[in-house]
Design a protein around this nucleic acid. Sequence first.
DNA 1: AAAAAAAGAACGAACGTTCGCTATATTTTT
DNA 2: AAAAATATAGCGAACGTTCGTTCTTTTTTT
Lengths: 241, 241
Amino acid sequence: MPRAVEADRLMNMTFNRFKKEASITEEELCREFFNEHCRLIKVKNEKIAVKNLALIIKTTIRLSNEIGFYSMSMRDLSRETGLSMGALYSYFPGKGRLLDMIHHLGGKTVMRVLQTYIEKEESPAEKLETAVRAHLYLSEIMKDMFYFFYMETKNLNKKNRKTPVASELLTERVFIDILKEGVKKGIFKIDDILLTGSVIKAMLQDWYLKRWKYRKRRINVEKYAGFVIRFINKNIIKELK
Amino acid sequence: MPRAVEADRLMNMTFNRFKKEASITEEELCREFFNEHCRLIKVKNEKIAVKNLALIIKTTIRLSNEIGFYSMSMRDLSRETGLSMGALYSYFPGKGRLLDMIHHLGGKTVMRVLQTYIEKEESPAEKLETAVRAHLYLSEIMKDMFYFFYMETKNLNKKNRKTPVASELLTERVFIDILKEGVKKGIFKIDDILLTGSVIKAMLQDWYLKRWKYRKRRINVEKYAGFVIRFINKNIIKELK
DNA sequence: AAAAAAAGAACGAACGTTCGCTATATTTTT
DNA sequence: AAAAATATAGCGAACGTTCGTTCTTTTTTT
């Protein structure tokens, strides 16, 4: 069916379109961060707070991804942000809490974006493709943050440590629900839905966990997305006999 | 072809058989460790050294997987092993070097086992299945060490940091070479060999990176191996028309 | 008795955090 | 409108703690 394939290709959400539509700006996220934690942030001026929070969060993620959150000292953060030790502690209650707060922000953002895009689609096949693309594109835009999330989970305090575990399962659940719906409607044929959901998640994570590898091989996110979707579809789409 | 499938199933390497055959004992690995680094180890009695090295390495991996290698202090290690601070420093030159030494040991072991098992097989299809199973079974036996490798890579010193990156690519190459051979012999039909190798690696890694998830769902390593192999095969085995 | 191994007190460096201070912006009073 | 008072942001030295490591002493083995 070359015509149908062609139509599909035209309808594919491109990375650039997603980037424009989603328009997840650093500033907007930091404003949300500020409003949510203003009780813990000593700086009251929103304009100043948002500016410096953006600087602090960006620098924390960068340094953590280079040497690990635990290895990054507050003096490192002070030097790299240009803010003094005292000033830093006006923006968060302590090093550990800073980590928790960034995690909280990221988790919420991912789920919000994912849900928004899935709701737009009708059929399970379209939902699945959209979910895969939205997840990959979002992780491409926020690649440092995604890597940071994955690698620094164990450094969270016990209360918040459950969140990313739950978040891992939550993202996976989105895919499992789509798969279930597809099976129910007779569109998908899947042996093991749970395991299928797991390996989909694994393939999505590989994109941001092995960035250096894919960059080196000049594989862009759209190519990867297309490959993953075809790879999945071969295993779940009912064959027409 | 129910008969062929049945034959295949009988020939599948089981986890228990692998465990017996490979017989990777903690003690044997530590003896290798001792002989390789005896220049840096002050304790000369092999029996004592191997016993305590096993204790030190096991405890280091356990504590690192719980709280991270950097968060684990030498006092933690002293308390948990029951060895004094002074005694610890008779077994390795320093905390950083201990990490390097464990990584070195693990990397060598993985490649050795993988190569041994692949050499036994003839056809690419069998090689692929064996490689997948050997990798998964090995990571099941040494699950803590595999998790440790992945999570503590960035804490290695710069000289040794290249090793795990190279090791990631090295393991992947094993699979890519099998895929290439299969295509050449006309057994496999693959669009993108490099990307196929990548997602195979991603699925294998998921097994030891998300141990808690699979344990909770009561999915054992053999079931996972079977699923992964079928998932891959649907994408690479030439269809008979 | 000599050698090897283990012990644990001690050391300086570096850690996260605090706190008194200065500088600047905003509000209130005159 | 000018002056005084207050509030806020930023600073960096200093604190107590904990870190990796060393070194002398004690115990165990040969």
